[in-house]
Amino acid sequence: MKPPPFDYHCPETLDEALALLAEHGEGAKVLAGGQSLVPMLNLRALHPAVLIDINRLPGLDHVSLEDGRLRIGALARHRAVLESAAVREASPLMAEAYPYVSHGPIRNRGTLCGNLCHNDPASEMPAVVLASDAEMVLQSASGTRSVGAGDFFTGMLSTAARADELLVEVRMPQAPAGQGAGFHEVSPRKGDFAYVAAGATMTLDGGTCSGVRIVCAGVGDGPHRARAAEDALEGAAPGEDAFRQAAEAATEGLDPGEDFHADADYRRDLVCSLTRRALADAASRCH
């Protein structure tokens, strides 16, 4: 299990990196933390002609909260995000969910942006950023554009990023004051990708749930927003029954896919119970 041969570039500036991406296009792969890319190379599931290693690009490792906006750069490692005070302040959901993402040594290298670009359907963070109205800032030699999370995740292991684009930053609005978040996951083992994960955020507005967001991972070919469940709860009084009903709504019409680890019935059951738990946690953490 050794990688196939490839050309390797390690640009020192963003412009250089973007020029290389423009030059090599589809044949190139960006190498960030390598925690998804290198296993795939070792398995020879990919044969890129060129690797463009972005690890030496300056100024992309930020995790910051400015003017009510959380900004996480392409080289912010999982560990930096996990330990960031800015994240705890700006996104209780991300803070709740991060401990479920892999293990220490993987987090030391892996990046949030790489994780989002990889878009594994069982990955936690795509669901988190989907719930958080995040914007993906994509830059190429020909310009910069911003894509909302809802449009970014386009299917199994694929995103709206073009081959010549780099995801340079994720931006998220700071969660509204008083927001509570809950995140629950069942994975084969601690630190593994999820069978199913469910995240929820809400604020309690005059005793009723408002701004409810419910997202799931592991239920299809990418992160999933359970809009019917959100609608069922929006404006309702919090409580076990309400959460249960919302959780059931989250499973309605859901075709979560299956593999030998987890069949569709099992995934639906998990969506239901984990959503309920996430909602209960979210409500109890509103302040």
Partner: peptide
């Protein structure tokens, strides 16, 4: 609780990697 070589009907082994053939970690 965890381990089982999973062959499908065509005889493909679906968990030849340690990411899918589940040795218990410390947490299990």
């Amino acid at each position: 609780l965890y381990e089982h070589f999973h062959y499908d009907e065509s005889g493909q082994l679906h968990n030849a990697l340690l990411s899918d053939y589940l040795h218990p970690t410390l947490m299990e």
